[in-house]
């Protein structure tokens, strides 16, 4: 198992109170496996990613649980130890590559720097590795493009550069946070093709954080649906999307017009996601749920059938989404 997250909690201690952004999250990612972490804004999916990389800043803090990476716990490691892992064995790709790339440095400078941060190699060798990585992600004439600055690339090409940087050390795990959300459909599809190829070729594991169930369906083997800091349902993509059990997953699938046939009515989930500061007691979804009963005022524990996990008192076994 490349990554095993057990009961992870990340809380933010703010003046208004404690925001439980991630509240007891568990999942596993095997070698070469892609896990889609799906949820709406504020569900805690990005904070989960940041927690794995040790990038949670105060007032936030990992307050409990384990992050086992190749069997070793990352929680409580010193910043120095984390720095040796981050970028080398675990890499991250963000939504907006303009934020990860330094606008005043050429791509070459940034890539050579990244290589030499972890490996003591000559500049020429670092450069050769940079050229190779750019080629892998499908940037035409990588040798010449290396001298360019981020603003000279289009959005899709910038995201490719960001992926190339993430690949420089052949990480065992990549955390990708909404990496194609800002891209056009045809460009998104190009990036997904690149990711798919790399994951099979190098046996790289991925945690693909996204709000788009369609992208996850096309890319991942497993999916975990997050709501209000918790994973409410998880299993293989086929299990979860063909036989969703949790009312939130069902609601999410019925809200996306692309998943329906033309003319089918959208059945939106009423209301909106609760603020992490003011979560309702019991099941946090109960106030928006079509299946809620009095039982939901208590907290649902995770239950499972054949490796398909859910947290719900009223699992929807019969209902086809």
């Amino acid at each position: 198992m490349t990554l095993k997250v057990e009961n992870l909690s990340t809380h933010f201690f703010t003046r208004e109170g404690v925001a439980k952004a991630v509240d007891g999250v568990s999942f596993e990612v095997g070698r070469g496996e892609i896990l889609g972490l799906v949820g709406e804004s504020g569900s805690g999916k990005s904070i989960t990613g940041f927690s794995i990389l040790g990038l949670v800043d105060p007032p936030g803090r990992v307050t409990g649980g384990k992050i086992l990476f190749q069997g070793q716990d990352l929680v409580g490691r010193s910043p120095h130890e984390m720095r040796a892992i981050r970028g080398k064995r675990i890499a991250m790709i963000f939504q907006d590559p303009m934020m990860t790339l330094n606008p005043v440095l050429s791509i070459e400078t940034q890539m050579v720097e990244t290589v030499r941060a972890h490996d003591k190699v000559s500049k020429a060798e670092a450069r050769a590795r940079a050229v190779e990585a750019l080629g892998l992600v499908g940037i035409p004439s990588p040798d010449e493009r290396l001298a360019a600055y981020p603003h000279q690339f289009s959005g899709g090409m910038r995201q490719r550069v960001a992926i190339a940087i993430a690949l420089l050390h052949r990480p065992e795990l990549i955390i990708a946070d909404e990496p194609t959300t800002a891209l056009d459909v045809t460009i998104q599809s190009q990036i997904l093709a690149v990711i798919q190829r790399l994951s099979t070729e190098f046996g790289m594991s991925l945690v693909w954080i996204s709000h788009d169930l369609g992208v996850v369906a096309g890319l991942a083997q497993k999916v975990a649906v997050m709501y209000a800091g918790r994973i409410v349902e998880t299993g293989t993509v086929d299990d979860v999307l063909d036989r969703p059990i949790h009312p939130y997953t069902i609601g999410l699938m019925r809200s996306v017009p692309a998943n329906l046939d033309r003319g089918e009515t959208l059945t939106p989930i009423p209301g909106m996601a609760p603020s992490p500061l003011k979560r309702p007691s019991g099941c946090p979804f109960r106030l928006r749920c079509f299946a809620a009963t009095a039982a939901c005022e208590a907290e649902p524990e995770a239950a499972a059938i054949d490796g398909h996990l859910y947290r719900c008192f009223n699992p929807q076994f019969e209902r086809a989404a």
């Binding site: 798919q196 992208v215 369906a217 096309g218 993509v237 996306v256």
Partner: peptide
Amino acid sequence: VALLSEVPTIKQRRRQFNPVKGEI
């Protein structure tokens, strides 16, 4: 045709992404 075939939907699982080449 390219646009329509590239819209990700939950009906297509672990598909082979076969995008149109080039940038806009």
